[in-house]
């Protein structure tokens, strides 16, 4: 060991610099992405990916009966709205048209082949137990409780929302969701040429943030703005916005009308009409968290 300190330090720093340079080299992935930058995938690819996801879907969905969702309180105030959905398991045949519609509405990106082989899709809706399953927008959402930055938060209207710009990608929310409804952007879909902006109203998410079903938040916001403007022009028509007439993309796409979106607190909402007199179900592991997206079963 005839090495003095000077040589030792020199060797160490050379090795460290070498390592750093090697790590910063242009690797195969970035070469691909350079080639793909700005490339927009074909629509057909999205359809194919949905078919692949359908073939890999999970079979089990353990449902228990739950009461009808009630008004939520935020900062001591009760909101007049709580949006949610109900999925009729009897009507649904698991065709997967809702997934494609959702992907197109919300610009959900494709995934790489390795991810697809592991079943790690970005789809906000996935088929479980033969019916679509998405984020249930729980009233006391476990994901929001652990989010360190407050990027996952609740709107007064009962939506569990994501502030993408505030998300630091700790994935704590994903770990705490009992049903794994949250999807993580492992890849920079844009530079890999995997994302396509079908809908200008929804931003493309960057690499490293969490995302999930937003209950078509942008449609609700558009409707609210329209309502506000109208009531400003002709005041006195209707005092409160209840989100009537808004439909989510999956609801519109469903050929068998198995998905119904609406306001749980509005008696005139199609949602409340659809569930009257029937028992509501929720996945067993979500039932304690007061979910807003529920299920109906045959004949009950």
């Amino acid at each position: 060991m005839g090495m003095d300190r000077r040589d030792f330090l020199k060797t160490c720093s050379l090795l460290a610099v070498g390592g750093l340079l090697f790590g910063c080299r242009k690797n195969a992935l970035s070469e691909i992405s350079d080639g793909l930058a700005g490339r927009i995938p074909d629509e057909r690819l999205f359809e194919e990916e949905v078919r692949l996801a359908l073939s890999m879907s999970r079979k089990e969905l353990d449902l228990v009966a739950v009461p009808m969702p009630k008004a939520l309180e935020t900062k001591g105030e009760k909101s007049p709205n709580r949006f949610g959905m109900v999925i009729d398991m009897a009507a649904c045949n698991g065709c997967g048209k809702c997934i494609l519609a959702c992907n197109r509405e919300n610009n959900v990106p494709l995934v790489t082949e390795e991810d697809a082989a592991r079943g790690r899709f970005m789809h906000w809706i996935e088929i479980r137990g033969g019916a679509p399953f998405m984020c249930a927008h729980c009233g006391s959402a476990p994901c929001e409780k652990v989010c360190p930055t407050g990027a996952a938060s609740h709107t007064p209207d009962g939506l569990s929302t994501m502030m993408y710009k505030r998300c630091t990608g700790s994935r704590f929310c994903g770990a705490n969701c009992p049903m794994q409804a949250r999807k993580f952007n492992f890849n920079d879909a844009k530079s890999l040429g995997l994302s396509r902006q079908f809908n200008k109203e929804v931003p493309l998410r960057s690499k490293g943030v969490m995302e999930k079903c937003s209950l078509c938040l942008h449609r609700l916001q558009d409707d609210r703005l329209r309502f506000k403007t109208e009531s400003a022009v002709a005041p006195g028509a209707s005092a409160e916005w209840r989100g009537r007439g808004v439909k989510t993309a999956c609801m519109e796409a469903c050929p068998r009308k198995a998905i119904v979106f609406g306001n749980w607190l509005d008696g005139e909402s199609p949602l409340v009409k659809a569930v009257s007199g029937r028992t509501l179900y929720a996945p067993r592991s979500l039932a304690p968290f007061d979910p807003s997206v529920l299920f109906l079963m045959e004949g009950r």
Binding site: A16, N27, D115, F184
Partner: peptide, 20 residues
């Protein structure tokens, strides 16, 4: 130092590619 060299490579690649 010997262990650090492959370690630094892995670290750089982890930072560049991300959680994937």
């Amino acid at each position: 130092a010997v262990l650090l060299v492959p370690g630094l490579m892995a670290l750089c690649s982890a930072l560049q590619v991300g959680p994937a």
